[in-house]
Amino acid sequence: MKLDSKTILIYVEHSGSKVKKNTSELITAVKKAAPSAELTGVLLCVPAERAKLCSDIEKLNLKKVYVVENESFSIFSKENFASAVKAVIEKAAPALTVFSHTTNSSETAKVLASRTQLAIICDAINFAVYEDGEFVAVHPMYAGKIRAHIKFENQPGGIVTLRPNVVEVCETASGACSSFETVPFTPVSNDAVKIINVIADASKKIDLSEADIIVAGGRGVGSKENFKVLEDLAAAINGVVGASRAAVDAGWREHHDQVGQTGKIVNPKIYIACGISGAIQHTVGMQTAKCIIAINKDPEANIFKIADYGIVGDLFQVVPELASELKKLING
């Protein structure tokens, strides 16, 4: 599928009051691959949110933004969200629809693919346009040990999801978004599947796959209570706490904190591995972090092979000291 000067639809992800950073990542990745394509956006929100989001959206510099407003969007339903995006696709006829590969958006994208018969490439880390003009998305396989360069085959259009945090956002000169178009929409009442409750988890502030700084602990942390040492370091540097499978299986952390092949794949700026040996199933989940710091008392630990900086020592000594040193730096 070729993209030149065709329309690309960007799925605008937001928190209700702010457009999320991963939306800018989508725009950066698409612009780099296809500079001459026309970028439009799709925004789903409840009516009260629209005004709050407006200024953020204008900064995105999109040619046009299709807005679907509905009270039903206050609760996430992949079927409902997908059918709203489908309504916009039918209007805008984009060559490509781009989502962030986050928990909810990736689900929406898959349902959309299933409903529209559009081809989908999931969990890409990069886009490119080859010399012959073909759009290609790079998708890590085998937990990142291999990268597959994938194109759409005989398709008029397609859907692609981009892993959050892998693209460095370039700020573009801000110009006002030229137009908003409201798209009428009747929510789908899904009688087959109903959400009856959402049990909020107070400990889960931000999804690991979107975090900039992760302080991760393994079996070496020793107990649930001991994770406090890591929580303190994370708090000092505005990070979140992750864990190895050993720590999760021991019941010290929830499964959504697990990093690795059967947990989350993360790409933070800083990853501090404390008391983690560096088993391959763990490292495939964090080896694309920009800066890896390992703290382990075993100088032979595998984690040191992929770490940018290592400290051989007892984490209960090193981690609190590091927290206080970094706090000093940050507070200038």
């Binding site: 081809a119 989908i120 490439i121 080859y130 073909e134 290609v136 890590p140 396989m141 990142g144 040990k145 291999i146 990268r147 597959a148 360069h149 994938i150 194109k151 759409f152 085959e153 005989n154 398709q155 397609g158 080896q287 694309t288 890896i292 100088p299 040191f304 092979k305 992929i306 770490a307 940018d308 900086y309 290592g310 400290i311 051989v312 020592g313 000594q317 090193v318 000291e321």
Partner: peptide
Amino acid sequence: KIKIVKLSTPPPRPAGKIVKGDF
């Protein structure tokens, strides 16, 4: 609907360093 054009391996991470010295 999709086709793999080619496979590649990710670039290896450059070797890091152990920060020496006493605690």
